[in-house]
Amino acid sequence: MGDVSGLRAGSQTLAMTELRVSYTLDSTLETVDNAEQTASRIATETGFDEDEVMQISMAVREAAVNAVLHGNAYDPDKKVKLDFERTSQDLVITIRDQGKGLDLDKIPDPLAPENLLKTSGRGIFLIRSFMDEVQIHPSMTGTEIKLVKHVHGTSEDVKEASQ
């Protein structure tokens, strides 16, 4: 891929595909929609196909829902921080809230027969289903969730170029 060669040529050409953008958002439902739309736009610009764009935007939406509802509990004094970082190999999206910290042990398996008919509890599962890597870091001052989707073929291209 031409753009990958460009990336390897020197840091001055990285602007073609690299991106780092950060948003600080209110704890509202509007933020959830904005996060989803922004993720969809950036994923499309990155070159992901339609299904992947849907997966990425949905994962971001679910993470934003968790941040706004369960993390910040709609508190107007608490913000949601949304970062997008695009490298030659990955699109990395980080969502942070200022809540009490997600208790990972309390997230039930939504596929367990006894949970199938529950009306909630599928958000984290969907995020994990849709992204290549998911890291969740709860702390006393909030939860950070990092979502990674690998950009097509670039790992192979980079490997070949370095040989």
Partner: peptide, 11 residues
């Protein structure tokens, strides 16, 4: 449809 929508269908 998001996870909330799925929950609504189940409900």
């Amino acid at each position: 449809i998001d996870s909330s929508g799925i929950g609504e269908l189940v409900s």
